[in-house]
Nucleic acid binder design. Sequence first.
DNA 1: GACTAATATGCATATACATGCATATATATA
DNA 2: TATATATATGCATGTATATGCATATTAGTC
Lengths: 114, 114
Amino acid sequence: MQIDTFQTLADPSRRRIVEALCNGERQVGDIVERAGIHQSGVSRHLRILHETGFVSVRPEGQRRFYSLRPEPFRELDDWLAKYRGLWEARLDRFGAALEKQRKHRRPAHKDQRK
Amino acid sequence: MQIDTFQTLADPSRRRIVEALCNGERQVGDIVERAGIHQSGVSRHLRILHETGFVSVRPEGQRRFYSLRPEPFRELDDWLAKYRGLWEARLDRFGAALEKQRKHRRPAHKDQRK
DNA sequence: GACTAATATGCATATACATGCATATATATA
DNA sequence: TATATATATGCATGTATATGCATATTAGTC
């Protein structure tokens, strides 16, 4: 279920943990330094992230290496697809793909009219 | 700030409201039917969605028509871009755009290995 | 076995927040 | 003005959950 994907990402500490993992697997102690909360909290968040499919674990002796799994992100992407029309409506699909490609190549669309 | 975009979407009632708006503007009473909660709750959720930039309002007499704004969805898309590598790593960027195009044309990728 | 290091968990607490009810506000209509 | 309709808000309540502390657990080292 994609149901609680948003719920999981709603917590800022959890997002920081996810971000800490975006460049590959890390052990818990490593994550604690970046999470800004107590080790016990990180451990609990990692449990939640594991239960919701965001991370997988690779035990190695006393350490546990956590890494991101693609599924929930893909789910998020699928959910979002429903709303892509909101900002790509005027483009046909091929054009939209090209537009997206341009955007990803140069991330120069930070400041949009708010 | 994209900070509380996830927080906003974490609530299922709010997601139902967003979904109810995905085909264009609706007045509150219309939304209430689909939200599964009391009108007062819908009203409050709409306030939150407005504060976080998800919706805009168009008053018309005693009614208020709400509709989706693209910005938060775009923010979500930008956030997600950081993690696209998780499931598109093996493709170069042009290939990724094509792949994405294929996926959007035929949404036939529901059942993936879990 | 004693000791240390890495990670997880029970407990207590504080806080956030979603909800319904009753009511307020605003607009239309008679 | 009186009344009805549409939407918003104050209040009270229940529930979820993030956090730290202390401790348990597991594994490595002497």
